[in-house]
Simulated scan of single mutants.
Amino acid sequence: MNQEEILQLINAVSSSNLTAFRYKDGDVSLELECMAGFSGEGPAKVMVPSKEAGTAEKDENLSVIQSPMVGTFYAAKSEKGEPFVQVGDRVKIGQVVGIIEAMKLMNEIESDYDGIIEKISVQNKDMVEYGQPLIYIRTL
């Protein structure tokens, strides 16, 4: 699906009575959702998960902390606070690695592994999906 086709699809969904639309073709997935009170003018909310979200790492010493819910990811306790973890940090089982806000509730995300942070695949304030990889940890 090219950019022009995506824009046509957005316009078609925006001008209809649909509030949500999902499209999947192989590894490509597209989700359109109209905001509450959306008048049909301007673009709808578009979320396009990366291919990485559904791809398992081949390295057996690399473990993934996945999002247990849909919400907003926060890397620190406060806006100006230090991030819970950074690439290269050593973590222990049960250590808080981030927070996901869902329905105005702050849910601490804890590490299920002892190891070293290899990669953080989300940014502060990113919307995350259920099962989306958040943090890759090289287990010891």
Rank of each mutant, 00 (worst) to 15 (best):
G71H: 07
G71C: 02
G71Q: 05
G71P: 03
T72H: 02
F73Q: 03
F73M: 01
F73G: 00
F73E: 01
F73D: 02
Y74H: 04
A75V: 00
A76D: 08
A76P: 11
K77R: 14
K77S: 15
K77G: 11
S78Y: 15
E79D: 15
E79A: 15
E79G: 12
E79M: 09
K80A: 12
G81N: 07
G81W: 09
E82C: 02
E82V: 04
E82W: 01
F84H: 04
F84W: 07
V85W: 09
Q86K: 15
V87Q: 15
G88I: 06
G88M: 08
D89V: 00
R90I: 03
R90V: 12
V91I: 13
V91F: 10
K92N: 14
K92R: 14
I93V: 13
I93D: 11
I93R: 15
Q95I: 00
V96I: 15
V97A: 03
V97W: 13
G98F: 08
I99R: 14
I100Q: 09
E101Q: 12
E101A: 08
E101K: 09
A102P: 13
M103H: 10
M103K: 12
M103E: 11
L105W: 07
L105D: 12
L105Q: 14
M106S: 07
N107P: 03
N107T: 02
I109E: 06
E110L: 08
E110D: 07
S111W: 03
D112F: 11
D114R: 04
G115K: 01
I116Q: 14
I116D: 01
I116Y: 02
I117R: 06
K119C: 10
K119L: 13
I120A: 04
S121E: 09
S121D: 12
S121I: 00
